[in-house]
Nucleic acid binder design. Structure first.
Lengths: 233, 233, 233, 233
DNA sequence: GATGAATGAGCTTTCATTCAT
DNA sequence: AATGAATGAAAGCTCATTCAT
């Protein structure tokens, strides 16, 4: 990517930023999401560290920029895809799959996010944190709208649903992220989406209605028996 | 803890080990589970780094010793407590509460474990990893035994249940671990244990009752028919 | 050398490299070719160790650079000198003298090379090793060309000749390198070159012919004596 | 070796010494003759470093003891073997083979000796150095006695012969010692012993006869001159 | 004749950051 | 909008040696 051009060429600010972000991603990826040395980025771009510090006065800011850029990319398909889907079940399945697929494609960036950035002091309240909330709140919204429409139970916290979704995905994908296992995004997405849907689904009204009918039948029958008893005796 | 004693006093190996482990915990805790410099530990103990390296030839080994020690402490109450509890629901509630309470009491050690150790190359297959599997597998066991006894559904993977439990707890406790929020261990344990129990529970007793009703209806109907037969004849 | 300038002045990369190499040589020399601490080099240059690591990412690379630089310097006079000399005997004498003189002038660097670098894992196949082979192979070449031209015996391995040359020089100069003795480069070079030449020289055909002549002379003399005897009696 | 006994058992001084020496050799060998940490030796013996320092107050002394012990072992077969051999050629071949075989069997100890001990300040004049001189001087003796007996040339320095022998062996065995090559001790010993013998051997008998011839020619010429004088007068 | 703990000085290396040019 | 050199602080680790018990 960077190697195609003459090293250290003078770029317009925007191009330089794009380049830095792109190479920083590569560096994170090749370091398994454990570290991202500025020197490594500069080296690959054929520029010096100072050039990067001109644009991002601290490493923290660069890190955030890299992850925000990635997050926005991920969000684009996430939100546009979600708009075209209706039905709680289908939406749930979509966000689950989308999240899992994201981990499947960017395990190192995810590790970096989970292990380095999300653990840091400065994450809370950051731009990235806001993006994450927007991302995660789609699940909250799906669940609460489902509850409003009566499809889902209203007595369960949608936030808990959100935590379940992201939590179980994070747990399940850990061996893959650690490069000691693999998984099938489709299958695992099905399982998880199903599970969450069922955990939040209302007990089907049909059952309830059928139950009512049975009770009424029973009542009537008892009456009939009483009557019949009177007739017989 | 260490500051109270005379610095650098000559200790028996066992005491020194205990001291190192204890102070290492402190250091991790005060660093919010982000780092654990050997120099800091040595400094607090009033000894030189080399003295620690006599006992733990690599930092990795010390880290593992610290976390194993902590894990064993946690496991003791976990396993002994679990033995005295019967009933799937109750056991599930116990392990959930226990895990949450552990995070509540040791958020920094948990952060260190999640963010540093569990992300590292050498964790997989380590003693600590084995302890973790033992810990987590209690949940698998509870769920699969529940399925065998007919209390839980047999069509859901107990491993998924395990991942849900630990995943949702990890997610839910994150703001607390980041020191930007708090939570009530009891309440959240109730919610989560409930949710998992319901997600794995067999269809409710109403079905069973409905079955009863049907049987009784059938009986009554037979009687009515007989009576009706007598009336007729 | 370095002490004369203002410490820590900002230098162009090339100058800094030259300076580091030069000071590294000094450090090796003053340490009798036993060690070369980076900190010592940095200290003398008035810079920090990290500044050296910017240029040589590992100590190994710096060591190799220092010795390659020295080797190249030595090779220059070696190869240019050799080109202007013809005759096996003269060439052999030249390379022997040159090698001995090199040891005479740089005993500590030689010690460092022999005792530290050549003993290390990474030497084999390195740039320095290649230079050394080029250096040593001149002797092989001289001997095999001498054999081709009939001046030297063809039944002796030129490689053995090379090993003799460098081996005996290394042995003979050891007391000097250890600073417990001295030697006269000229004298020892004569001895060694002579010895190797003679060991590889063909038995001179002239001797054989001369032997023939002597025999014929002897025969004729006998005849003359016999004649003279007849005259006298 | 050390593992067979209970670790740290109280030993008589002599046994402890023997044990330390033996294990030290192992340590040197397993470290490729590059280093010999005291801690490693103590660890293998199940004792503490201090126990070794009781016996050898400095590492230097232990190192010397280890190498002297080894040298004495080597010397035993060397000297006893040599006594039973007569003839310059045969003795030369024996010492060459013995030396090469020693390197063949103990390449790491040899490396340690060459690269570490022989390069150190304290080697000169040490017990080990004396042993080495005794070892090497056998070659000097063989060569000078050969010269006295007229078998070898008297105009060549026996010391040079010694340096050639040890030098060429050291050079030739370097790839083997570096574990990047191998060699056949017998073959190489033949080559080297031959070469040295020939380099020091007196010119063949033909030369001697030629000398005779010259003398006789001189005598005859004188006679002829006398006769010619008689004829003339 | 040991033990066992601890020292202290050194080493190589890493990396975010600064600043004169 | 950069360069290019350098900093400084820390980290993990090694090892010969000491000394109280």
């Amino acid at each position: 990517m960077a190697e195609e051009r003459k090293a250290g060429a003078r770029l317009r600010r925007g191009d330089r930023i794009a380049e830095i972000i792109a190479v920083a991603r590569e560096v994170i990826t090749e370091n398994n999401g454990v570290e991202m040395p500025i020197g490594e980025i500069a080296g690959r771009l054929g520029i010096v560290e100072g050039a990067i510090y001109r644009i991002y006065p601290t490493k923290r800011q660069l890190v955030m920029a890299v992850l925000c850029d990635w997050y926005e990319e991920v969000m684009a398909s996430y939100e546009s895809g979600l708009e075209q889907i209706s039905g709680v079940r289908e939406q749930l399945r979509f966000v689950t799959y989308h999240h899992i697929d994201c981990i499947y494609r960017y395990p190192e960036l995810v590790n970096f996010y989970f292990g380095v950035v999300r653990m840091s002091r400065e994450y809370w309240g950051s731009e990235l944190h806001k993006l994450n909330r927007r991302y995660a709140n789609r699940v909250v919204k799906i669940l609460s709208e489902g509850a409003l429409r009566g499809e889902l139970r209203a007595d369960k916290s949608p936030r808990l649903g959100r935590d379940i979704l992201f939590g179980v995905v994070e747990q399940s994908t850990w061996p893959y992220r650690m490069k000691v296992g693999t998984f099938d995004p489709d299958e695992i997405a099905d399982n998880i989406a199903d599970l969450i849907y069922n955990a939040f689904a209302r007990p089907p009204e049909t059952d309830v209605r059928r139950h009512d009918v049975a009770e009424r039948l029973l009542g009537i029958s008892e009456e009939l028996r009483a009557i019949a008893g009177g007739v017989r005796s």
